[in-house]
Amino acid sequence: MKVILDVFKEAFLLILRLDSEFLSVLSLSILVSGSASILAALFGVPFGVALAEGNFKGKRLLLTLTHAFMALPPVVAGLVVFLILMRSGPLGSLRLIFTPASMIIVQTILAFPIVAGLTHASVSSVDPRYEIQARGLGASRLQAVVVKVRQARMGVVAAVIAGFGRVLAEVGAVMIVGGNIKSQTRVLTTHLLLYARQGKYEMALADGIVLIMLSVLINAFLTKAQFQRARTQIAQRITSYPS
């Protein structure tokens, strides 16, 4: 019991002391996962909106694929990206393997379906009357879509945050393509893994605590977004009457 208490104490001290190694790992984690989330948002939000609003062939197939890839196992994504980026792979000449860039690429691939899928869900659930009303006031198709997306903005932000949460907690893919090289590609999760294996439990636990804190933060935000949506839905129900 004493040992585990000591481990906890040391872990908290490490976080409070802002140990430089720990800080660099944390900042790389946020940098990599943050960039990946932003990239995933740049591609995933328009894609999700197109899935929700577009009228094109193969939409159902794309939607099914998106939903399927929301549960893409990270190690598989990691392996595929590794095979593509490795020296003898098709994009080997870019020399991206075992760099933060390759980690951002693989995390973008992991976050993209989540951002797209959740964006699709939240835009589809916007009251269709928003579009009809906007069109009735002279909005073009695109402007009406923008109106709907703005209405779904909490959901869209939640989608991006959910994507961030996934990639931040992900270990398999970044391990494969990043290589866990100290102060270059070592992030919270791979750092935790390494130190757990080396028996540096304080350090590993400090990582774990920070990961949990980030995940709590993210979930607090998601819950808030959900409540907000529920509230606007209730408000809509109160002010709307059957015609």
Partner: peptide, 11 residues
């Protein structure tokens, strides 16, 4: 240690 050319993999 801590040189840019020195890659510590930890693996």
């Amino acid at each position: 240690v801590r040189k840019g050319w020195y890659l510590e993999t930890g693996q």
